[in-house]
């Protein structure tokens, strides 16, 4: 690592980072115990700000789609506030627009959002075993792709207040954007909106790449995941699979293969 950035100002930066990483490892357990709910909440708000910005831009499209389907801005806002799911909401809007049955609504929602089953399972091992039941009921309200991403990224055990903090800024961003989109349509210049649309993908990269940099297994895992995802969306027969199914199938297959080939060692377990 140091070999890369030995010259110039960046050397200092890397040194600083190394110090930070070392101090994190040293005080990890102590820190998790010492950090109050309030501190976790504040940390969640801070990390939730880029999510809120990205949501705001993306949810405009959601509002516009809802409006075209004959849904009022108030209804669209309610939907965004309680569902907090991008693909899931688009699918729900389609079901409503087609006036399908409630059973179809339940099945569509289940299939499109099945990945949350995996995310919540992963989080069940990330939170403290003694986490109160109330938080086990409240935390899942705020498991979106992005909030899940930052929550799995925290050092040591996850405190649910981190998610509540992130949701405090992200939910208004998502809801407000939807309502505005349904009311006035596109107010941002098209190019700005397109550019902001990749904010959330940028965040995903910021979550997975640092881990991959430190750990070769994760580096291989991330590369393989992206390659297979690319192939599955391009190859003739496989590209017929919807993107939500592709996400869940690939997640299960690749994670299971990785777990069999490279089960985590003791020290990695503690990190997770």
């Amino acid at each position: 690592m140091c070999f890369f950035v030995r010259t110039g100002r960046k050397y200092v930066l890397t040194c600083g980072q190394c110090t930070v990483i070392m101090s994190f490892v040293g005080f990890k357990n102590q820190r998790s115990i010492m950090m109050s709910n309030r501190t976790w909440y504040g940390k969640g708000i801070k990390d939730g700000i880029p999510i809120a910005l990205g949501y705001f831009a993306v949810s405009f499209a959601m509002g516009i789609t809802a409006k075209e389907a004959g849904i009022t801005p108030l209804q669209a806002g309610c939907m965004s506030a309680v569902m907090l799911a991008s693909a899931g909401q688009f699918a729900a809007i389609q079901v409503i627009a087609a006036a399908d049955t409630l059973v179809q609504m339940a099945i569509t929602t289940l299939v499109i959002n099945l990945r949350y089953l995996l995310m919540s399972s992963s989080l069940s091992q990330k939170i403290d075993k003694k986490t109160h039941f109330i938080h086990r009921l409240l935390l899942p309200c705020f498991v979106t792709d992005e909030i899940f991403g930052i929550a799995s990224n925290v050092e040591g055990r996850l405190n649910p207040f981190y998610n509540y903090g992130a949701a405090t800024v992200a939910v208004p961003g998502w809801t407000l954007g939807t309502v505005l989109g349904a009311t006035v349509g596109a107010i941002l210049p098209e190019r700005v909106e397109t550019a902001l649309g990749v904010a959330l993908y940028g965040m995903f990269l910021a979550i997975i790449i640092p881990g991959a940099r430190k750990n070769k297994v994760l580096a291989v895992l991330v590369t393989v995941s992206m390659l297979l995802s690319f192939l599955c969306s391009e190859l003739p027969v496989l590209s017929g699979i919807s993107s939500s199914m592709r996400i869940i199938i690939l997640t299960v297959v690749i994670s299971a293969a990785a777990a069999l080939i490279r089960p985590i060692r003791e020290e990695e377990k503690q990190e997770s």
Binding site: S124, I208, S272
Partner: peptide
């Protein structure tokens, strides 16, 4: 445990 540990990395990579 390993499976659940790898899930976030794989799923976010696939989504991106």
């Amino acid at each position: 445990r390993s499976f659940l540990y790898y899930v976030p990395y794989v799923t976010l990579a696939v989504m991106t």
